[in-house]
């Protein structure tokens, strides 16, 4: 549960540059389709939402269904015009939200 997300993005960028951001959240992503050995359906439990914002403004988000593989990986881009902080969040089916932050210096 208390797994930490993995993030990969540059620490520095030029003003107006489009940077690449890679994120990976360790999670089983139980689809709700599988059955246990007694034939009972294993309840669904996935990360259903991901958001990324920069200095409080939305950059990218995703609505996630059980068809996204375990340890959901998302790669996307962001155009940076100023130094600041990226905030990422992953919402679990159980209501918990995992967050992470990363700073970038833009010159």
């Amino acid at each position: 549960m208390a797994e930490k997300p993995r993030l990969k993005l540059p620490k520095e960028a030029k003003k107006g540059e489009i940077i690449e951001i890679k994120t990976l959240m360790p999670h089983v992503m139980e689809s709700g389709q599988r059955k246990d050995k007694d034939g009972k359906t294993i309840p669904r439990r996935i990360i259903n939402k991901f958001t990324a914002e920069f200095n409080g403004k939305p950059v990218f988000s995703a609505t996630i269904e059980p068809a996204v593989a375990a340890n959901p990986y998302l790669q996307f881009t962001a155009k940076v015009e100023e130094s600041g902080t990226f905030k990422f969040s992953w919402t679990d089916d159980d209501g918990s939200i995992i967050t992470a932050e990363e700073k970038i210096t833009v010159a």
Partner: peptide, 24 residues
């Protein structure tokens, strides 16, 4: 079993309308 896979939401701050993930 279900049609939904993922929906990406972009903004002008995304810079590009491009995303990658891994699916089942």
């Amino acid at each position: 079993p279900n049609p939904g896979v993922v929906t990406f939401h972009f903004t002008p701050l995304s810079g590009k309308a491009e995303a990658q993930t891994r699916i089942r």
